[in-house]
Nucleic acid binder design. Structure first.
Length: 557
RNA sequence: GCCCCUGUAGCUCAGUGGAUAGAGCAAUGGUUUCCUAAACCAUGUGUCGCGUGUUCGAUUCACGCCAGGGGUACCA
Protein backbone atom coordinates (compact mmCIF):
# COMPACT_ATOMS: atom_id res chain seq x y z
CA UNK A 1 0.00 0.00 0.00
CA UNK A 2 2.92 2.25 0.64
CA UNK A 3 3.85 2.00 -3.00
CA UNK A 4 0.50 3.52 -3.96
CA UNK A 5 1.10 6.49 -1.70
CA UNK A 6 4.59 6.80 -3.08
CA UNK A 7 3.42 6.86 -6.69
CA UNK A 8 0.64 9.27 -5.86
CA UNK A 9 3.20 11.55 -4.24
CA UNK A 10 5.53 11.31 -7.23
CA UNK A 11 2.77 12.35 -9.58
CA UNK A 12 1.54 15.16 -7.33
CA UNK A 13 5.05 16.51 -6.95
CA UNK A 14 5.52 16.37 -10.67
CA UNK A 15 2.31 18.29 -11.30
CA UNK A 16 3.24 20.97 -8.79
CA UNK A 17 6.70 21.25 -10.29
CA UNK A 18 5.17 21.66 -13.75
CA UNK A 19 2.89 24.35 -12.43
CA UNK A 20 5.80 26.25 -10.97
CA UNK A 21 7.64 26.02 -14.27
CA UNK A 22 4.42 27.12 -16.00
CA UNK A 23 4.25 24.02 -18.13
CA UNK A 24 0.86 23.30 -16.59
CA UNK A 25 -1.68 25.92 -15.53
CA UNK A 26 -2.32 26.27 -11.80
CA UNK A 27 -5.17 24.17 -10.50
CA UNK A 28 -6.32 24.48 -6.92
CA UNK A 29 -6.92 20.94 -5.85
CA UNK A 30 -6.45 17.64 -7.50
CA UNK A 31 -6.37 14.16 -6.13
CA UNK A 32 -4.07 11.63 -7.70
CA UNK A 33 -5.66 8.22 -7.44
CA UNK A 34 -3.52 5.20 -8.08
CA UNK A 35 -5.34 2.12 -9.37
CA UNK A 36 -4.43 -1.37 -10.33
CA UNK A 37 -5.04 -1.93 -14.04
CA UNK A 38 -6.98 -5.02 -14.96
CA UNK A 39 -4.59 -6.04 -17.68
CA UNK A 40 -0.95 -6.91 -17.08
CA UNK A 41 0.19 -5.02 -20.17
CA UNK A 42 -0.99 -1.84 -18.49
CA UNK A 43 1.55 -2.22 -15.75
CA UNK A 44 1.33 -2.74 -12.01
CA UNK A 45 -0.33 0.57 -11.23
CA UNK A 46 -1.96 3.39 -13.14
CA UNK A 47 -3.51 6.79 -12.71
CA UNK A 48 -6.16 8.57 -14.75
CA UNK A 49 -5.04 12.03 -13.67
CA UNK A 50 -4.37 13.23 -17.27
CA UNK A 51 -8.02 12.57 -18.09
CA UNK A 52 -9.17 14.30 -14.94
CA UNK A 53 -7.03 17.38 -15.56
CA UNK A 54 -7.57 17.63 -19.31
CA UNK A 55 -10.62 19.85 -19.11
CA UNK A 56 -9.33 22.09 -16.32
CA UNK A 57 -6.01 22.58 -18.06
CA UNK A 58 -7.58 22.86 -21.49
CA UNK A 59 -4.90 20.53 -22.78
CA UNK A 60 -4.94 17.05 -24.24
CA UNK A 61 -4.45 14.14 -21.81
CA UNK A 62 -1.45 13.05 -23.85
CA UNK A 63 0.23 16.43 -23.45
CA UNK A 64 -0.45 16.52 -19.72
CA UNK A 65 0.84 12.99 -19.28
CA UNK A 66 4.02 13.80 -21.16
CA UNK A 67 4.67 16.79 -18.89
CA UNK A 68 4.00 14.75 -15.77
CA UNK A 69 6.14 11.82 -16.86
CA UNK A 70 9.03 14.13 -17.72
CA UNK A 71 9.50 15.02 -14.04
CA UNK A 72 9.25 11.49 -12.73
CA UNK A 73 12.59 9.84 -12.28
CA UNK A 74 12.87 6.10 -12.05
CA UNK A 75 14.14 4.71 -8.80
CA UNK A 76 14.86 1.54 -6.88
CA UNK A 77 11.27 0.35 -7.26
CA UNK A 78 10.05 2.02 -10.39
CA UNK A 79 11.27 0.59 -13.66
CA UNK A 80 9.13 2.23 -16.31
CA UNK A 81 6.42 4.87 -16.72
CA UNK A 82 4.34 5.21 -19.85
CA UNK A 83 1.38 7.05 -21.29
CA UNK A 84 -1.49 4.99 -22.65
CA UNK A 85 -4.60 6.03 -24.52
CA UNK A 86 -7.05 7.52 -23.85
CA UNK A 87 -5.26 9.21 -20.96
CA UNK A 88 -3.61 6.95 -18.44
CA UNK A 89 -0.16 6.89 -16.95
CA UNK A 90 0.99 3.34 -16.30
CA UNK A 91 3.65 2.35 -13.82
CA UNK A 92 5.81 -0.74 -14.01
CA UNK A 93 7.43 -1.86 -10.78
CA UNK A 94 10.74 -3.69 -10.48
CA UNK A 95 10.80 -7.24 -9.20
CA UNK A 96 13.24 -6.15 -6.49
CA UNK A 97 10.46 -4.20 -4.84
CA UNK A 98 8.29 -7.30 -4.64
CA UNK A 99 11.14 -9.46 -3.31
CA UNK A 100 11.58 -6.94 -0.53
CA UNK A 101 7.87 -7.03 0.25
CA UNK A 102 7.95 -10.80 0.42
CA UNK A 103 10.80 -10.58 2.92
CA UNK A 104 8.68 -8.20 4.98
CA UNK A 105 5.79 -10.65 4.94
CA UNK A 106 8.15 -13.29 6.24
CA UNK A 107 9.58 -11.11 9.01
CA UNK A 108 6.43 -9.26 10.05
CA UNK A 109 3.88 -12.04 9.70
CA UNK A 110 0.30 -10.97 10.27
CA UNK A 111 1.42 -7.42 11.10
CA UNK A 112 2.22 -6.89 7.44
CA UNK A 113 -1.49 -7.05 6.63
CA UNK A 114 -2.70 -4.59 9.23
CA UNK A 115 -3.88 -1.05 8.57
CA UNK A 116 -4.71 1.95 10.73
CA UNK A 117 -8.28 2.61 9.63
CA UNK A 118 -9.81 2.29 13.10
CA UNK A 119 -7.35 4.57 14.90
CA UNK A 120 -7.82 2.50 18.06
CA UNK A 121 -11.51 3.33 18.30
CA UNK A 122 -13.67 1.25 20.58
CA UNK A 123 -16.10 -0.57 18.36
CA UNK A 124 -18.96 -2.86 19.22
CA UNK A 125 -20.05 -5.45 16.73
CA UNK A 126 -23.47 -6.73 17.63
CA UNK A 127 -24.76 -9.66 15.65
CA UNK A 128 -26.91 -12.79 15.72
CA UNK A 129 -28.90 -11.63 18.81
CA UNK A 130 -31.63 -14.15 18.09
CA UNK A 131 -34.37 -14.56 20.68
CA UNK A 132 -33.67 -17.46 23.01
CA UNK A 133 -36.87 -19.17 22.00
CA UNK A 134 -35.40 -22.19 20.29
CA UNK A 135 -32.47 -23.43 18.27
CA UNK A 136 -30.79 -21.22 15.69
CA UNK A 137 -32.04 -21.99 12.23
CA UNK A 138 -30.37 -21.54 8.88
CA UNK A 139 -31.82 -18.07 8.46
CA UNK A 140 -29.57 -16.90 11.26
CA UNK A 141 -26.37 -18.34 9.83
CA UNK A 142 -25.59 -15.60 7.37
CA UNK A 143 -25.27 -12.77 9.86
CA UNK A 144 -23.37 -15.02 12.24
CA UNK A 145 -20.77 -15.96 9.66
CA UNK A 146 -20.38 -12.48 8.26
CA UNK A 147 -20.09 -10.97 11.73
CA UNK A 148 -17.44 -13.38 12.90
CA UNK A 149 -15.20 -12.70 9.91
CA UNK A 150 -15.84 -8.99 9.95
CA UNK A 151 -14.60 -9.04 13.53
CA UNK A 152 -11.24 -10.37 12.41
CA UNK A 153 -10.99 -7.86 9.60
CA UNK A 154 -11.78 -4.95 11.90
CA UNK A 155 -9.28 -6.17 14.45
CA UNK A 156 -6.60 -6.11 11.76
CA UNK A 157 -7.72 -2.56 11.02
CA UNK A 158 -6.80 -1.06 14.36
CA UNK A 159 -10.21 -1.13 16.01
CA UNK A 160 -10.66 -2.36 19.52
CA UNK A 161 -13.59 -4.66 18.80
CA UNK A 162 -16.06 -6.26 21.15
CA UNK A 163 -18.49 -8.86 19.83
CA UNK A 164 -21.86 -8.81 21.52
CA UNK A 165 -24.92 -11.02 21.48
CA UNK A 166 -28.04 -9.30 22.78
CA UNK A 167 -30.30 -11.78 24.51
CA UNK A 168 -33.94 -10.72 24.30
CA UNK A 169 -34.98 -12.43 27.48
CA UNK A 170 -37.54 -9.94 28.66
CA UNK A 171 -39.99 -9.33 25.86
CA UNK A 172 -43.31 -10.59 24.71
CA UNK A 173 -41.92 -13.42 22.60
CA UNK A 174 -40.19 -14.74 25.68
CA UNK A 175 -43.45 -14.64 27.58
CA UNK A 176 -45.20 -16.60 24.83
CA UNK A 177 -42.33 -19.04 24.70
CA UNK A 178 -42.47 -19.62 28.43
CA UNK A 179 -46.21 -20.13 28.28
CA UNK A 180 -45.75 -22.72 25.56
CA UNK A 181 -43.08 -24.48 27.55
CA UNK A 182 -45.25 -24.64 30.62
CA UNK A 183 -48.06 -26.11 28.56
CA UNK A 184 -45.68 -28.82 27.40
CA UNK A 185 -44.64 -29.53 30.95
CA UNK A 186 -48.26 -29.73 32.08
CA UNK A 187 -48.74 -32.24 29.30
CA UNK A 188 -45.90 -34.28 30.70
CA UNK A 189 -46.95 -34.30 34.31
CA UNK A 190 -50.67 -34.64 33.71
CA UNK A 191 -51.87 -37.42 31.42
CA UNK A 192 -55.27 -35.89 30.93
CA UNK A 193 -53.98 -32.47 29.99
CA UNK A 194 -54.73 -31.31 26.48
CA UNK A 195 -52.87 -28.50 24.88
CA UNK A 196 -55.14 -26.29 22.85
CA UNK A 197 -53.21 -23.63 21.05
CA UNK A 198 -49.69 -22.57 21.79
CA UNK A 199 -47.45 -20.00 20.19
CA UNK A 200 -44.43 -22.26 19.88
CA UNK A 201 -45.60 -25.68 18.77
CA UNK A 202 -42.17 -26.89 17.61
CA UNK A 203 -40.96 -30.30 18.64
CA UNK A 204 -37.82 -28.92 20.17
CA UNK A 205 -40.03 -27.53 22.91
CA UNK A 206 -41.18 -31.01 23.84
CA UNK A 207 -37.56 -32.06 24.22
CA UNK A 208 -36.82 -28.97 26.24
CA UNK A 209 -39.82 -29.67 28.48
CA UNK A 210 -38.58 -33.20 29.08
CA UNK A 211 -35.08 -32.00 29.80
CA UNK A 212 -36.23 -29.33 32.23
CA UNK A 213 -38.67 -31.68 33.97
CA UNK A 214 -35.97 -34.26 34.43
CA UNK A 215 -33.49 -31.81 35.86
CA UNK A 216 -36.09 -30.43 38.29
CA UNK A 217 -37.39 -33.91 39.14
CA UNK A 218 -40.86 -33.17 37.86
CA UNK A 219 -42.79 -36.27 36.95
CA UNK A 220 -46.34 -37.45 36.55
CA UNK A 221 -48.44 -36.04 39.35
CA UNK A 222 -46.09 -33.16 40.20
CA UNK A 223 -47.73 -29.85 40.86
CA UNK A 224 -46.66 -26.52 39.45
CA UNK A 225 -46.33 -23.58 41.82
CA UNK A 226 -44.78 -20.15 41.63
CA UNK A 227 -41.53 -21.48 43.03
CA UNK A 228 -40.85 -24.21 40.50
CA UNK A 229 -42.32 -22.15 37.67
CA UNK A 230 -39.59 -19.64 38.25
CA UNK A 231 -37.00 -22.40 38.22
CA UNK A 232 -38.44 -23.88 35.03
CA UNK A 233 -38.21 -20.59 33.22
CA UNK A 234 -34.68 -19.74 34.26
CA UNK A 235 -33.46 -23.28 33.59
CA UNK A 236 -35.09 -23.34 30.15
CA UNK A 237 -33.45 -20.04 29.32
CA UNK A 238 -30.01 -21.21 30.30
CA UNK A 239 -30.41 -24.47 28.39
CA UNK A 240 -31.59 -22.64 25.29
CA UNK A 241 -28.77 -20.15 25.45
CA UNK A 242 -26.28 -22.90 25.99
CA UNK A 243 -27.53 -24.67 22.90
CA UNK A 244 -27.23 -21.47 20.92
CA UNK A 245 -23.68 -21.01 22.19
CA UNK A 246 -22.75 -24.55 21.23
CA UNK A 247 -24.18 -24.15 17.75
CA UNK A 248 -22.30 -20.91 17.23
CA UNK A 249 -19.13 -22.46 18.55
CA UNK A 250 -19.46 -25.21 15.96
CA UNK A 251 -19.89 -22.58 13.28
CA UNK A 252 -16.73 -20.86 14.50
CA UNK A 253 -18.63 -17.87 15.80
CA UNK A 254 -17.55 -16.45 19.13
CA UNK A 255 -18.64 -13.58 21.34
CA UNK A 256 -16.97 -11.48 24.00
CA UNK A 257 -20.16 -10.38 25.63
CA UNK A 258 -23.66 -11.80 26.13
CA UNK A 259 -25.90 -8.93 27.12
CA UNK A 260 -29.25 -9.66 28.72
CA UNK A 261 -32.16 -7.45 27.86
CA UNK A 262 -33.47 -8.05 31.38
CA UNK A 263 -30.40 -6.27 32.79
CA UNK A 264 -31.77 -3.07 31.33
CA UNK A 265 -34.71 -3.33 33.70
CA UNK A 266 -32.48 -3.67 36.77
CA UNK A 267 -32.21 -0.71 39.13
CA UNK A 268 -35.03 0.97 37.23
CA UNK A 269 -32.59 1.82 34.46
CA UNK A 270 -35.23 1.49 31.81
CA UNK A 271 -37.71 3.57 33.81
CA UNK A 272 -35.11 6.28 34.28
CA UNK A 273 -34.51 6.46 30.56
CA UNK A 274 -38.25 6.76 29.92
CA UNK A 275 -38.49 9.43 32.60
CA UNK A 276 -35.64 11.35 31.01
CA UNK A 277 -37.38 11.23 27.66
CA UNK A 278 -40.65 12.32 29.24
CA UNK A 279 -38.85 15.31 30.72
CA UNK A 280 -37.61 16.11 27.24
CA UNK A 281 -41.19 15.90 25.90
CA UNK A 282 -40.25 12.85 23.85
CA UNK A 283 -42.45 10.37 25.66
CA UNK A 284 -46.18 10.83 26.21
CA UNK A 285 -49.18 8.80 27.36
CA UNK A 286 -51.99 7.78 25.05
CA UNK A 287 -54.54 4.95 25.32
CA UNK A 288 -52.93 3.91 28.60
CA UNK A 289 -49.63 3.19 26.84
CA UNK A 290 -46.46 5.25 26.79
CA UNK A 291 -45.33 6.42 23.40
CA UNK A 292 -42.08 7.68 21.99
CA UNK A 293 -42.67 10.83 19.99
CA UNK A 294 -40.98 9.64 16.81
CA UNK A 295 -42.88 12.16 14.71
CA UNK A 296 -41.02 14.95 16.48
CA UNK A 297 -37.75 13.40 15.29
CA UNK A 298 -38.68 12.91 11.69
CA UNK A 299 -40.39 9.53 11.81
CA UNK A 300 -43.76 8.90 10.26
CA UNK A 301 -45.23 7.43 13.41
CA UNK A 302 -44.93 7.49 17.14
CA UNK A 303 -43.88 4.23 18.72
CA UNK A 304 -45.13 2.44 21.81
CA UNK A 305 -42.52 2.14 24.52
CA UNK A 306 -44.56 0.70 27.37
CA UNK A 307 -47.55 -1.52 26.62
CA UNK A 308 -50.96 -0.76 28.03
CA UNK A 309 -51.96 -4.33 28.83
CA UNK A 310 -49.20 -5.38 31.22
CA UNK A 311 -47.09 -2.25 31.55
CA UNK A 312 -44.10 -4.07 30.08
CA UNK A 313 -41.58 -2.49 27.74
CA UNK A 314 -41.79 -3.15 24.02
CA UNK A 315 -38.80 -4.30 22.00
CA UNK A 316 -38.32 -0.73 20.92
CA UNK A 317 -38.67 0.39 24.52
CA UNK A 318 -35.75 -1.63 25.80
CA UNK A 319 -33.82 -0.73 22.67
CA UNK A 320 -33.94 2.88 23.82
CA UNK A 321 -32.22 1.85 27.02
CA UNK A 322 -29.94 -0.57 25.21
CA UNK A 323 -28.58 2.05 22.84
CA UNK A 324 -28.29 4.57 25.62
CA UNK A 325 -26.21 1.96 27.37
CA UNK A 326 -24.04 1.29 24.33
CA UNK A 327 -23.18 4.88 23.61
CA UNK A 328 -23.52 6.78 26.86
CA UNK A 329 -22.72 4.18 29.52
CA UNK A 330 -20.23 1.90 27.78
CA UNK A 331 -19.11 4.72 25.51
CA UNK A 332 -18.45 2.88 22.28
CA UNK A 333 -17.02 5.15 19.60
CA UNK A 334 -18.72 3.05 17.00
CA UNK A 335 -21.42 0.43 16.96
CA UNK A 336 -22.12 -1.89 14.08
CA UNK A 337 -25.35 -3.87 14.23
CA UNK A 338 -25.80 -6.72 11.81
CA UNK A 339 -29.46 -7.48 11.24
CA UNK A 340 -31.54 -9.53 8.92
CA UNK A 341 -33.48 -7.53 6.35
CA UNK A 342 -36.68 -8.35 8.20
CA UNK A 343 -35.60 -5.75 10.76
CA UNK A 344 -35.42 -3.08 8.14
CA UNK A 345 -38.29 -1.08 9.56
CA UNK A 346 -36.31 -0.74 12.74
CA UNK A 347 -33.41 1.14 11.17
CA UNK A 348 -34.94 4.59 11.08
CA UNK A 349 -36.36 4.03 14.53
CA UNK A 350 -32.96 3.33 16.00
CA UNK A 351 -31.54 6.43 14.40
CA UNK A 352 -34.32 8.42 16.01
CA UNK A 353 -33.10 7.08 19.34
CA UNK A 354 -29.67 8.52 18.65
CA UNK A 355 -31.32 11.79 17.76
CA UNK A 356 -33.25 11.79 21.01
CA UNK A 357 -30.04 11.35 22.99
CA UNK A 358 -28.07 13.72 20.75
CA UNK A 359 -25.63 11.04 19.68
CA UNK A 360 -23.84 11.56 16.37
CA UNK A 361 -25.57 9.25 13.93
CA UNK A 362 -22.28 8.36 12.28
CA UNK A 363 -21.46 6.38 15.36
CA UNK A 364 -24.01 3.74 14.41
CA UNK A 365 -23.83 1.58 11.35
CA UNK A 366 -26.40 -1.03 10.48
CA UNK A 367 -25.61 -3.83 8.10
CA UNK A 368 -28.75 -5.43 6.77
CA UNK A 369 -28.16 -8.78 5.23
CA UNK A 370 -30.89 -9.77 2.84
CA UNK A 371 -32.83 -12.93 3.40
CA UNK A 372 -31.50 -16.26 2.27
CA UNK A 373 -33.71 -18.31 0.05
CA UNK A 374 -33.08 -21.85 1.16
CA UNK A 375 -33.90 -24.48 -1.36
CA UNK A 376 -33.75 -28.19 -1.54
CA UNK A 377 -33.21 -29.44 -5.05
CA UNK A 378 -34.76 -26.31 -6.50
CA UNK A 379 -37.77 -26.18 -4.20
CA UNK A 380 -37.96 -23.27 -1.83
CA UNK A 381 -38.11 -24.13 1.81
CA UNK A 382 -40.40 -21.96 3.85
CA UNK A 383 -39.46 -21.70 7.45
CA UNK A 384 -41.88 -21.54 10.23
CA UNK A 385 -41.66 -22.64 13.78
CA UNK A 386 -45.38 -23.23 13.59
CA UNK A 387 -45.25 -25.79 10.80
CA UNK A 388 -42.05 -27.19 12.10
CA UNK A 389 -40.31 -26.74 8.79
CA UNK A 390 -37.17 -25.66 10.43
CA UNK A 391 -33.69 -26.48 9.32
CA UNK A 392 -31.39 -25.76 12.19
CA UNK A 393 -27.84 -24.57 11.83
CA UNK A 394 -26.75 -27.82 13.45
CA UNK A 395 -28.42 -29.73 10.64
CA UNK A 396 -26.94 -27.42 8.05
CA UNK A 397 -23.47 -28.04 9.44
CA UNK A 398 -24.04 -31.80 9.43
CA UNK A 399 -25.26 -31.71 5.85
CA UNK A 400 -22.96 -29.21 4.19
CA UNK A 401 -20.05 -28.78 6.59
CA UNK A 402 -18.82 -25.72 8.43
CA UNK A 403 -16.16 -24.68 5.91
CA UNK A 404 -18.42 -24.85 2.87
CA UNK A 405 -21.23 -23.16 4.74
CA UNK A 406 -19.02 -20.30 5.88
CA UNK A 407 -17.46 -19.84 2.47
CA UNK A 408 -20.82 -19.64 0.73
CA UNK A 409 -22.15 -17.00 3.10
CA UNK A 410 -18.94 -15.00 3.14
CA UNK A 411 -18.64 -14.85 -0.62
CA UNK A 412 -21.86 -12.95 -1.21
CA UNK A 413 -22.47 -9.29 -0.61
CA UNK A 414 -24.95 -8.85 2.26
CA UNK A 415 -27.16 -6.91 -0.16
CA UNK A 416 -27.83 -9.98 -2.29
CA UNK A 417 -30.86 -12.06 -1.71
CA UNK A 418 -28.97 -15.24 -2.14
CA UNK A 419 -30.14 -18.71 -2.98
CA UNK A 420 -28.80 -21.54 -0.92
CA UNK A 421 -29.67 -24.93 -2.28
CA UNK A 422 -28.91 -27.57 0.31
CA UNK A 423 -28.86 -30.37 -2.19
CA UNK A 424 -26.69 -28.44 -4.62
CA UNK A 425 -24.31 -27.40 -1.86
CA UNK A 426 -23.85 -31.03 -0.91
CA UNK A 427 -23.75 -32.29 -4.45
CA UNK A 428 -21.18 -29.78 -5.56
CA UNK A 429 -19.20 -30.07 -2.41
CA UNK A 430 -16.31 -31.79 -4.12
CA UNK A 431 -16.29 -29.07 -6.77
CA UNK A 432 -16.82 -26.31 -4.28
CA UNK A 433 -14.53 -23.27 -4.36
CA UNK A 434 -13.95 -23.77 -0.67
CA UNK A 435 -12.07 -27.00 -1.33
CA UNK A 436 -10.17 -25.42 -4.15
CA UNK A 437 -8.75 -22.88 -1.73
CA UNK A 438 -8.06 -25.46 0.93
CA UNK A 439 -6.50 -27.81 -1.58
CA UNK A 440 -4.01 -25.14 -2.57
CA UNK A 441 -3.14 -24.79 1.10
CA UNK A 442 -2.75 -28.54 1.55
CA UNK A 443 -0.50 -28.73 -1.50
CA UNK A 444 1.83 -26.11 -0.11
CA UNK A 445 1.93 -28.02 3.17
CA UNK A 446 2.76 -31.14 1.27
CA UNK A 447 5.72 -29.53 -0.45
CA UNK A 448 7.03 -28.20 2.83
CA UNK A 449 6.68 -31.66 4.38
CA UNK A 450 8.70 -33.18 1.58
CA UNK A 451 11.33 -30.48 1.94
CA UNK A 452 11.63 -31.22 5.63
CA UNK A 453 12.19 -34.91 5.07
CA UNK A 454 14.96 -33.95 2.68
CA UNK A 455 16.26 -31.47 5.24
CA UNK A 456 16.42 -28.60 2.79
CA UNK A 457 17.18 -25.27 4.41
CA UNK A 458 15.41 -22.42 2.66
CA UNK A 459 14.38 -19.68 5.08
CA UNK A 460 17.06 -17.27 3.88
CA UNK A 461 17.26 -18.39 0.28
CA UNK A 462 17.90 -15.80 -2.38
CA UNK A 463 14.64 -14.55 -3.89
CA UNK A 464 16.15 -12.73 -6.87
CA UNK A 465 16.29 -15.87 -8.95
CA UNK A 466 12.51 -16.18 -8.90
CA UNK A 467 11.81 -14.69 -12.30
CA UNK A 468 9.26 -17.06 -13.79
CA UNK A 469 6.02 -15.33 -14.66
CA UNK A 470 4.01 -17.53 -12.33
CA UNK A 471 6.43 -16.84 -9.49
CA UNK A 472 6.28 -13.09 -9.97
CA UNK A 473 2.51 -13.08 -10.29
CA UNK A 474 2.21 -15.07 -7.10
CA UNK A 475 4.52 -12.75 -5.16
CA UNK A 476 2.64 -9.70 -6.44
CA UNK A 477 -0.64 -11.22 -5.37
CA UNK A 478 0.61 -11.85 -1.85
CA UNK A 479 1.55 -8.21 -1.45
CA UNK A 480 -1.95 -7.19 -2.47
CA UNK A 481 -3.69 -8.66 0.56
CA UNK A 482 -3.30 -5.56 2.79
CA UNK A 483 -5.38 -3.59 0.29
CA UNK A 484 -8.07 -6.24 0.31
CA UNK A 485 -8.26 -6.26 4.08
CA UNK A 486 -8.49 -2.48 4.14
CA UNK A 487 -11.24 -2.58 1.51
CA UNK A 488 -13.21 -5.14 3.51
CA UNK A 489 -12.82 -3.05 6.65
CA UNK A 490 -13.82 0.20 4.96
CA UNK A 491 -16.86 -1.26 3.26
CA UNK A 492 -17.67 -3.61 6.15
CA UNK A 493 -17.89 -6.45 3.64
CA UNK A 494 -16.37 -9.89 3.65
CA UNK A 495 -16.80 -11.11 0.10
CA UNK A 496 -13.72 -9.38 -1.25
CA UNK A 497 -11.55 -11.68 0.77
CA UNK A 498 -13.23 -14.84 -0.47
CA UNK A 499 -12.73 -13.62 -4.02
CA UNK A 500 -9.12 -12.93 -3.21
CA UNK A 501 -8.66 -16.37 -1.72
CA UNK A 502 -9.82 -17.92 -4.99
CA UNK A 503 -7.49 -15.76 -7.04
CA UNK A 504 -4.55 -16.54 -4.81
CA UNK A 505 -5.34 -20.26 -4.88
CA UNK A 506 -5.47 -20.14 -8.65
CA UNK A 507 -2.03 -18.54 -8.85
CA UNK A 508 -0.67 -21.10 -6.42
CA UNK A 509 -1.96 -23.92 -8.60
CA UNK A 510 -0.47 -22.32 -11.69
CA UNK A 511 2.85 -21.91 -9.96
CA UNK A 512 2.69 -25.51 -8.82
CA UNK A 513 2.11 -26.70 -12.36
CA UNK A 514 4.81 -24.70 -14.02
CA UNK A 515 7.50 -24.48 -11.35
CA UNK A 516 8.82 -27.70 -9.96
CA UNK A 517 9.86 -26.83 -6.42
CA UNK A 518 11.84 -29.71 -5.00
CA UNK A 519 14.69 -30.95 -7.08
CA UNK A 520 17.49 -33.39 -6.33
CA UNK A 521 19.71 -31.98 -9.04
CA UNK A 522 22.73 -30.13 -7.72
CA UNK A 523 22.42 -27.29 -10.25
CA UNK A 524 18.84 -26.62 -9.16
CA UNK A 525 19.60 -26.52 -5.46
CA UNK A 526 19.42 -22.76 -5.14
CA UNK A 527 16.29 -22.38 -7.20
CA UNK A 528 14.68 -25.11 -5.17
CA UNK A 529 15.45 -23.32 -1.91
CA UNK A 530 14.17 -20.00 -3.25
CA UNK A 531 10.94 -21.58 -4.39
CA UNK A 532 10.53 -23.26 -1.05
CA UNK A 533 10.81 -19.90 0.60
CA UNK A 534 8.04 -18.63 -1.65
CA UNK A 535 5.92 -21.70 -0.97
CA UNK A 536 6.30 -21.33 2.77
CA UNK A 537 5.32 -17.68 2.71
CA UNK A 538 2.39 -18.34 0.41
CA UNK A 539 1.24 -21.04 2.77
CA UNK A 540 1.41 -18.61 5.67
CA UNK A 541 -0.58 -15.96 3.83
CA UNK A 542 -3.25 -18.37 2.66
CA UNK A 543 -3.37 -19.63 6.22
CA UNK A 544 -4.09 -16.12 7.49
CA UNK A 545 -6.85 -15.82 4.95
CA UNK A 546 -8.42 -19.10 5.98
CA UNK A 547 -8.30 -17.95 9.59
CA UNK A 548 -10.02 -14.69 8.74
CA UNK A 549 -12.69 -16.69 6.94
CA UNK A 550 -13.00 -18.91 9.99
CA UNK A 551 -12.24 -22.03 8.04
CA UNK A 552 -10.02 -24.98 8.78
CA UNK A 553 -6.52 -25.26 7.35
CA UNK A 554 -6.15 -28.87 6.22
CA UNK A 555 -2.54 -29.95 5.84
CA UNK A 556 -3.63 -33.01 3.94
CA UNK A 557 -6.69 -33.61 1.80
C1' G B 1 -49.57 3.54 -0.81
C1' C B 2 -44.73 4.29 1.58
C1' C B 3 -39.55 2.41 2.79
C1' C B 4 -35.32 -0.99 1.70
C1' C B 5 -32.62 -4.70 -1.40
C1' U B 6 -31.94 -7.01 -6.09
C1' G B 7 -32.03 -7.40 -11.77
C1' U B 8 -24.63 -8.81 -15.19
C1' A B 9 -23.02 -15.68 -19.13
C1' G B 10 -27.40 -21.71 -19.05
C1' C B 11 -27.12 -21.65 -13.13
C1' U B 12 -24.97 -19.27 -8.47
C1' C B 13 -22.70 -14.78 -7.94
C1' A B 14 -18.31 -10.96 -8.15
C1' G B 15 -16.96 -6.25 -10.23
C1' U B 16 -16.00 -0.88 -11.67
C1' G B 17 -16.95 6.69 -13.29
C1' G B 18 -12.39 4.78 -17.54
C1' A B 19 -8.36 1.29 -21.39
C1' U B 20 -10.79 -5.82 -24.08
C1' A B 21 -17.17 -6.68 -18.08
C1' G B 22 -15.13 -11.45 -14.67
C1' A B 23 -15.11 -16.10 -11.31
C1' G B 24 -17.12 -20.75 -9.84
C1' C B 25 -20.47 -24.45 -11.49
C1' A B 26 -22.47 -26.71 -15.79
C1' A B 27 -20.74 -28.30 -21.36
C1' U B 28 -16.85 -30.26 -24.96
C1' G B 29 -11.84 -32.03 -25.87
C1' G B 30 -7.02 -33.03 -23.89
C1' U B 31 -3.09 -33.83 -19.69
C1' U B 32 -0.77 -38.44 -14.68
C1' U B 33 6.92 -42.84 -14.94
C1' C B 34 7.73 -36.23 -11.46
C1' C B 35 6.51 -32.12 -4.59
C1' U B 36 -1.42 -34.30 -3.68
C1' A B 37 -5.49 -35.11 -10.72
C1' A B 38 -10.19 -32.20 -4.88
C1' A B 39 -5.38 -30.28 -10.09
C1' C B 40 -3.95 -28.30 -14.96
C1' C B 41 -4.59 -26.79 -20.29
C1' A B 42 -7.81 -25.57 -24.39
C1' U B 43 -12.90 -24.11 -26.38
C1' G B 44 -17.82 -20.78 -26.25
C1' U B 45 -21.63 -17.62 -24.39
C1' G B 46 -23.40 -11.27 -22.53
C1' U B 47 -28.98 -5.52 -25.79
C1' C B 48 -24.67 -5.50 -17.79
C1' G B 49 -33.80 -5.26 -16.85
C1' C B 50 -35.80 -0.72 -20.02
C1' G B 51 -35.60 4.65 -20.89
C1' U B 52 -33.84 9.66 -20.00
C1' G B 53 -30.20 12.72 -17.92
C1' U B 54 -25.14 14.20 -15.73
C1' U B 55 -20.03 13.37 -17.75
C1' C B 56 -14.54 13.84 -22.16
C1' G B 57 -16.25 8.78 -20.75
C1' A B 58 -22.02 5.31 -17.45
C1' U B 59 -22.90 -1.58 -16.58
C1' U B 60 -21.23 1.86 -12.33
C1' C B 61 -23.98 8.21 -10.52
C1' A B 62 -29.24 10.78 -10.67
C1' C B 63 -34.35 10.45 -12.09
C1' G B 64 -38.47 7.64 -14.16
C1' C B 65 -40.45 2.89 -15.51
C1' C B 66 -40.77 -2.63 -15.48
C1' A B 67 -39.82 -7.28 -12.79
C1' G B 68 -38.57 -10.23 -8.26
C1' G B 69 -37.98 -10.22 -2.89
C1' G B 70 -38.32 -8.08 2.08
C1' G B 71 -40.57 -4.59 5.49
C1' U B 72 -44.52 -1.38 6.93
C1' A B 73 -47.70 -4.24 15.20
C1' C B 74 -49.01 -2.05 22.15
C1' C B 75 -43.95 -9.24 17.95
C1' A B 76 -38.93 -9.24 18.12
Amino acid sequence: MKIKRLLSQLVSDSIIESQVSKKLPTIDNFDVIIDRPKIAEHGDFSTNIPLVLAKKCKMSPQKIADIIIENISLNKSLSYVAFANPGFINFFIKNDYFYDELKKIQSQGLDYFKNTLGRKQKLQLEFVSVNPTGPLHVGHARGAVIGSSLYKILKLSDYYVEREYYINDAGNQMRLFNQSLIERIKELINENYHIEDISYPGEYLIDLAKDVSKKLSLSKGSQLNSKNLEKIISLALSITINNIKNTLEKLNVKFDSWFNESNLLDDNFFQKIVKKLSDDQLVFIKDEAKWFKGTKLGLEDDIVVIRSDDGGPTYFGTDLAYHYNKFLIRKFDKVINIWGADHHSHVSRIYSILKAFEINNEKLEIILNQIVNFKNDGNSLKFSKRNNVLVTIDELIDEVGVDACRFIFLSRSPDTQMDFDLKLAKLQSSENPVYYVQYAYARMCSIIRTAKTKQINFSNANLNILTHNDEINLIKKLTQLPEIILKCAQLRQTHHITNFSMELAKLLQKFYESCRVISDKEEEKHLSASRLRLVENSRLVLGYILEIMGMSKPEKM
